[in-house]
């Protein structure tokens, strides 16, 4: 029970299938997400990542096992309360706009939740500010860049003040600049608001910012740990069609050649600093 109190999301041996004649999309999966934690989920296409996301806010219901969100057991009765707590940003920035201006779009979610007008205006302003899009409040969403569109989508979710934001491959259709914008935004809102983040991604660079990484394979959890711990298992990742960041590859090669690296580096700077220390003692 203690665990339940601490974690915001809890999956207890959750199984899900889309069709009876297909294998389980998720099989007896247990996982937790704590308050204000940043968890990344990686895995090849079809490994069950998006199914996890859809189960978290009741777009799907499990056939077996139980899901708790903020202590509420997911069911037909609780799903509407749960959706207020869990916001989702999807892959395609063009598929999630309804408003004719940026601020109308952010307002849409609030109207659906019956928020009074005065509070709505405040929330819209706050959430657009949090994603750095306040100057664009009167702009038409479809004229924005991909990165800007996704930031507005995040603002729309933020405005409803959820406890968890799920980004389901939200950067997949963006160019490198757009991806950087989103990652900066995510880090900023994490600092400013008490919110948990679940990021489903193929981008290894994005994974390095997470507190914890869950690697999915064929509907099951294959590896779980900090980014450093996960990237050490580069052979396993490679076998299931994933990759590790460039810096982790160099570190692995150097270790093989007898360089006694102690720490798993997450970026070039960390690796070079450790090499420099070793070099000075050589």
């Amino acid at each position: 029970m203690r665990e339940l109190e601490q974690s915001f999301i809890q999956f207890d041996e959750v199984s899900f299938w889309y069709n009876h004649d297909e294998p389980w999309a998720l099989k007896e999966l247990s996982l937790t997400i704590k308050k204000n934690e940043f968890v990344a989920v990686i895995g090849h296409n079809g490994s069950g990542k998006s199914t996890i996301a859809k189960l978290m806010n009741g777009l799907l219901f499990p056939q077996k096992g139980e899901i708790f969100v903020d202590g509420l057991r997911l069911s037909e009765e609780t799903v509407w309360d749960i959706r207020k707590k869990v916001g989702m940003v999807f892959q395609n920035p063009d598929n999630q706009f309804v408003g004719t201006t940026v601020e109308d779009d952010v307002a849409f979610g609030l109207e659906n939740h019956g928020i009074p007008r005065k509070e709505m205006i405040e929330r819209i302003e706050q959430s657009l500010k949090a994603v750095g899009m306040l100057d664009y409040r009167k702009h038409e969403p479809h004229r924005l860049s991909g990165g800007q569109k996704q930031r507005v989508a995040i603002a729309g979710v933020l405005a409803v003040a959820p406890d968890l934001i799920i980004l389901d491959e939200a950067t997949a259709m963006l160019d490198p600049k757009g991806r950087t914008e989103i990652m900066k935004t995510v880090q900023r809102i994490r600092k400013e608001k008490k919110v948990s983040i679940l990021m489903i991604t193929h981008d290894l660079h994005e994974v390095t910012f997470a507190d914890r990484v869950i690697v999915m394979n064929r509907g099951q959890k294959l590896i779980e740990g900090t980014p450093k711990e996960v990237f050490q298992q580069h052979e396993t990742l490679w076998e299931i069609g994933l990759d590790i960041p460039f810096v982790a590859k160099i570190a692995a090669e150097l270790k093989q050649r007898g360089i006694p690296l102690n720490k798993q580096p997450l970026n070039n700077k960390e690796l070079l600093e450790e090499l420099w220390r070793l070099h000075s003692n050589m």
Partner: peptide
Amino acid sequence: TAGLDPGG
């Protein structure tokens, strides 16, 4: 290859 996993 947009949207594919690293192996794909």
